[in-house]
Computed example of a mutant assay.
Amino acid sequence: MIELDLSADIQALRTTFANIREVVDVDALRADVDRLEQEAADPELWNDQANAQKVTSALSRVKAQLAKVTKIESRLDDLEVMVDLANEMEDEDAAQEARTELAALEKAIGDLEVQTLLDGEYDDRAAVVTIRSGAGGDDATDVAEMLMRMYLRWAERPGYPVKVMDTSYAEGAGIKSTTFEVDAPYAYGTLSVEAGTHRLARISPFGSADKRQTSFAAVEVIPVMEEAQEVDIPENDIRVDVFRSSGPGGQSVNTTDSAVRITHLPTGIVVSMQNEKSQIQNRAAAMRVLQTRLLLLQKEEEAAKKKELAGTITASWGDQMRSYFLYGQQLVKDLRTGYEVGNPATVFDGDLDGLINAGIRWRKRKIED
């Protein structure tokens, strides 16, 4: 006779899930889905390709988030039924299935709880990951390739789309560098805790026999920024002056005030135009040039922000955030959180969730302190 009692465990999960549900705000998610579905159904939407892609991407993201929450809620209900049936039928196989589902739900709710901690300005964006080999010769280029495979396998498990943008191969083993994009909700917030110097210690397959080698690789993670296609310039942000066009030697080109000078007051950018025949044409041309200059300025600011988010990573002794030991004691240890995994092979095969979740919790505590 079996007597399976998981009531305390299930209640603890329900309490945690209720807190998560409140933070996620399921009602707001449903309202967002309704609003975005209405926008997506508008036949005029695809007249603006950029906006259409933005709406459909947002709809897909919000639907996925809502589905994740509602599915967990349903699984909690089903788990209680599974326990009742196992006890009623006195079936040990059914009882083991319930225990397995409990463990799976604990992980799913834990992962969802961690996601509620991703509330940074860019955390919900897709991510661009760059890996560079550091000190350590062939071992360093080899570990850079091992890290690339590790992150690609991590993304492959839940089916996150990945686009490899650039890879520079080393003359010997491995790669000098690689850059790839992970296009998934909260990819940046999740993977940003992986940024830093990764250290690998092992018996080198490239050097003398039985000689231990330490090598390094740097991981940089930045968010995918929305690319601005045009800049809206309010009329009260500009001052327009008109004057008479002039030619060589300062002589007047025509007898009307057709030349235009536009000053963008917030930035001080000045654009003058006098080549067109009329004031209206010169003004339109000057506005196009001003828009272009403001767009370039915006891109420069975005690039500076990306550089700030990426930080400075040296990929050498003294600033490593994680160590991988592949000799003697088989261990992966995060030096910030203290989180350890005793099976490096599973980590290099993409099983990173434990390390990543510990990193996210550590970062949140650090911000709050």
Rank of each mutant, 00 (worst) to 15 (best):
I2G: 08
E3Q: 14
E3M: 11
E3V: 12
L4I: 08
D5Y: 07
D5C: 11
L6M: 05
S7T: 13
S7F: 00
A8N: 06
D9H: 07
D9K: 14
D9A: 10
D9S: 11
D9L: 00
D9W: 05
I10M: 10
Q11S: 12
A12V: 07
A12Y: 11
L13K: 02
L13H: 05
L13F: 00
T15E: 14
T15F: 00
T15Y: 03
T16K: 14
T16R: 13
T16M: 08
F17L: 06
F17D: 03
A18Y: 07
A18M: 09
A18W: 04
I20R: 13
I20L: 13
I20D: 05
R21V: 03
V23T: 15
V23K: 15
V24I: 15
V24C: 15
V24T: 15
D25K: 13
D25Y: 09
V26E: 11
A28R: 14
A28W: 02
L29D: 03
L29C: 06
R30T: 10
A31R: 07
A31T: 13
L36Y: 09
E37H: 00
E37A: 05
Q38V: 15
Q38K: 14
E39F: 01
E39N: 10
A41G: 14
A41W: 07
A41T: 08
A41H: 09
A41N: 15
D42R: 02
D42M: 07
P43V: 06
L45Y: 09
L45I: 10
L45D: 01
L45A: 11
N47A: 01
D48G: 01
Q49Y: 15
A50H: 09
A50P: 01
A50T: 05
N51Y: 12
N51K: 15
A52F: 04
A52Y: 08
Q53N: 14
V55W: 05
V55I: 13
V55L: 02
T56V: 12
T56P: 06
T56R: 05
S57H: 06
A58E: 13
L59I: 01
L59R: 08
L59H: 06
S60A: 14
S60W: 04
V62L: 10
A64V: 07
L66G: 02
L66Y: 11
L66W: 04
A67H: 10
V69S: 07
K71F: 02
K71M: 11
I72W: 08
I72D: 09
I72K: 07
I72A: 04
I72N: 06
R75V: 03
D77I: 13
D77P: 04
D77S: 12
D78C: 05
D78M: 10
E80F: 01
E80H: 02
V81H: 05
M82A: 14
D84A: 12
L85I: 14
L85G: 02
L85N: 04
A86G: 09
A86Q: 10
N87V: 10
N87D: 05
N87W: 07
E88D: 15
M89P: 00
D91V: 10
D91E: 00
E92V: 08
D93I: 11
A94Q: 14
A94F: 09
A94N: 01
A95D: 11
Q96R: 13
E97A: 14
A98G: 03
R99V: 12
L102C: 03
A103I: 04
A103P: 03
A104Q: 06
L105H: 06
L105D: 07
L105Q: 12
E106W: 01
K107R: 11
K107C: 04
K107G: 04
A108N: 05
L112R: 00
E113Y: 02
E113W: 05
E113N: 03
